[in-house]
Amino acid sequence: MKTKQDRKWLEALTLELRIHNIPGVKIGDTLATVKEHLADSGESAQVAFGSPAEYATHIAASTTTQNVSLKGTITRSAVGLIAFLAFTQATVPWVAGEALRLGVAQVAWLALPVVAALSVPLLFDKLLRNFWILAALIGTAVSGGVLAAFSAPRTSAEAWLSVAPLPVLLITASIMVIVSFIDTIATAKDGDDSIIDPLRSQRNAQKTRAFSVASNILVSWIFPIAALALLVLSALLGR
């Protein structure tokens, strides 16, 4: 690649092609074609191909896209994250044999990460294209979680609501497992969607695909695994 601008242009194109649900193999082919043309013509990517968003739109209109979208994967991750956050709130009270006590301020702060997660599908394109919107959303979610922890009621008298922790654990665990299961089916059905350089050998590409499918399935189960680890840790520390 000739310049830093061209490298940035290619990174932006990769993102735009992903947003259009272009398969990874086709993205690899498109990137390699752009590099070939830039080497042949000596032009900059911006001059030869225009903006990454518009070029991706032209490519998407010229080829077939895939059914499984990045948007679906991220939405499922957001649902899994909400379930995981709720699970973490109920773990310690359950191990201690106490009720899950919630304060008004705590619930209000907890609403922030929930709203942030639910807004992901609506703001999807903007989040991917604008780092600062993404940073603001993550900052909001994290701040809400931290402030919720600090505003948790310390006594039963301070609690606005007391609920049994076991149903919360069971419901949130079920949601996490269902979401992970759906993710696993999607990964197994569609296989790997890594960006493959067309010049890489078939054998290397197959190895990459197998590794990528395995790691994708592992990532799909990250919330149930983390929840189980948290439960075990809480039980050990609670003894």
Partner: peptide, 29 residues
Amino acid sequence: GGTLYPLLTRFETAGWLDVEWRPGEQGPG
């Protein structure tokens, strides 16, 4: 390039073209 390659991609998708990548002696393939 922004005009030609989407056109070639459309032809490829329509089955009008066979494509083959070959390594370049210098630089990209």
